[in-house]
Every structure is written in C-alpha cells, then in structure tokens.
C-alpha cells in the first residue's frame, strides 16, 4: 500500500507537470504526420502517383513509435538531469522510497501520454487506409504496446545512469537514439540494412515492437510469433540491475548535487 501511494503520488506530479508543458505533446502529435506526408508526397512525385496509402501508414506508425521511443528515452534522461539540477533527486534519494518506484512512475506517465498519442494517430491512419472495421486492431495494439514498452524502460534506466555519470542528457540520448533509429525499422524495413546492423536491430527490442505493431494494425495477428518477445523483458531486469549497481557504486559515492 505504501509503495502504491508512492507510485501514484509521483505519477500524479509527473502527469500534472506534463499537462502544464503541453507544447511537447502537440509536437509529438504532429511530427509523424508531417514526416509521413512528406515522404508520401515525395513517393507520389517520384513514382508518378503510384505511392500506396499502406506505405504512408507504414511510415506513420513507424515514425509514431519512433517518437514514443525517443520521448521515453529523453524523458528518462531529463528526469535525471532535472533531478540533478533542481535538487529533487537528492531529496528522492534521502526519502524512504525505492528510487525504482519513482522512475517507474515517471516512465508510466510518459508511456501513458505516448499511448494516448499513439491511439489518436494510429486510429486515424487505420481509418484512412483500412476503414472502420479495422479500428479494433488499434486497441489490440495498445494492449501489446503496454507490455512491449517495458523492456524499453529497462534500457532507459541505463540511459538514466549514463546521464548521471556524464551530467548532460543530450549526448547520451542522441547517441543512443541514433543507433536505435538506424537499426529499428521505423521508416524502412530492417532487411535493407547490412547484416551486422540487422543483428543489432534483432537484439534490441525496438524493431520487434515496430514490426509487431504494424502487423497487429494490418490485421495479421500472430500471437504465437510474439511470445519469444517475453525474453526481451530481460532488458527490464538488466536495466534495474545496472541502476542498482550505478546507485551503489556511483550515486551514493559521488553524490548527485549539481
């Protein structure tokens, strides 16, 4: 009960803060449309009007998920950076709370906002391309995403620890997101990549999330095929372990004052 109070308390504070900084939310909403229309328009122009709306949806979903993934990574890194700058992190560390609860609450608030974003964009895309009969697939994809994003929280914890070490979130998140963007198939099939990049893409959870979400939205659901993705939860365990090691070897020894 105590942990739940703590989780909900942090979640509420994060949500209120996010709602009062709504500009970022609007950008995240518009960005996938902007880029996917751009590439769709370019495709139409280059092919003499032969670009398929399904390719537009392919891009739209990929770019939406890319924004979600980037935002989650960035908000975790900035959670730590803001914590450093504002002194909030020190107060969290001096309170009788497991820091993971705070990070989990912050990540959940970020995931919920991103999923709301996703619902809007994906529903619109599916409606335009497949028609209203395919809309229930959007809600199925939300259920899938709620679980599939957990490994990403684990990886983001590693990004968070790196932010504490390097003190600046941008170099860490930019480097991390560059690799993720290249190998995860947000805008193109990973099969176009050199083999070693494909391998990296397969090891990381992102390409699985993108491909599976596209499949669910198109109606070709293969639940059995997604079950090996449970192994990706290992990233959550690994992220937690890295955070605990980082806390005891770095945070409590060096301090987190700015």
């Amino acid at each position: 009960m105590r942990s739940l109070n703590q989780l909900v308390g942090v979640f509420e504070a994060e949500v209120k803060t996010f709602l009062r900084e709504a500009g970022a939310f609007l950008f995240m909403l518009m960005f996938p449309f902007m880029i996917s229309f751009l590439t769709y328009g370019a495709g139409q122009a280059l092919t003499g009007g032969a670009a398929s709306p399904k390719q537009w949806l392919y891009q739209l979903i990929g770019l939406t998920l890319m924004m979600i993934v980037f935002t989650m990574t960035s908000s975790t890194a900035w959670f730590f950076r803001r914590g450093l700058m504002t002194g909030r992190l020190e107060y969290i560390l001096a309170a009788p709370i497991n820091p993971f609860i705070v990070i989990a609450a912050s990540s959940i608030s970020s995931v919920i906002f991103n999923i709301i974003n996703f619902v809007f964009i994906a529903s619109l895309g599916v409606l335009v391309v497949y028609g209203p009969h395919q809309l229930p697939a959007t809600f199925l994809s939300i259920l899938y995403l709620a679980a599939a994003l957990l490994p990403i929280i684990g990886l983001n914890l590693i990004v968070g620890v790196m932010t504490l070490v390097f003190r600046e979130p941008e170099p860490v998140t930019n480097a991390f997101n560059s690799v993720v963007a290249a190998v995860s198939g947000f805008a193109y099939p990973t099969t176009l990549l050199p083999v070693f990049l494909q391998a990296i893409g397969k090891i990381l959870p992102y390409s699985h999330v993108v491909e599976s979400t596209r499949e669910i939205l198109s109606g070709s659901i293969q639940l059995a095929a997604y079950s090996p993705q449970i192994l990706l939860l290992g990233y959550l365990v690994f992220g937690l372990w890295v955070y605990k090691v980082g806390e005891s070897l770095y945070v409590r020894k060096r301090g987190v004052s700015w």
């Binding site: 105590r2 504070a13 009062r20 004052s257």
Partner: peptide, 28 residues
C-alpha cells in the same frame, strides 16, 4: 539542502508538498 531547490516548478506549493507526502508513503 538548499532553500530554493527540490521542487517541481510547474506545480503549486501545495502540490509539491503533497508530492513529498506521497514519497513518504502518505495516502492522498
């Protein structure tokens, strides 16, 4: 630790105190 640090700038004074109360496990 510092008289002007440790709070969410976009929350009210009351909301910030409630946040810290929840960190210490208090109900809403």
């Amino acid at each position: 630790l510092a008289p002007d640090k440790g709070f969410y700038t976009r929350l009210t004074g009351l909301e910030n105190l409630v946040y810290y109360g929840r960190l210490y496990g208090l109900s809403r």
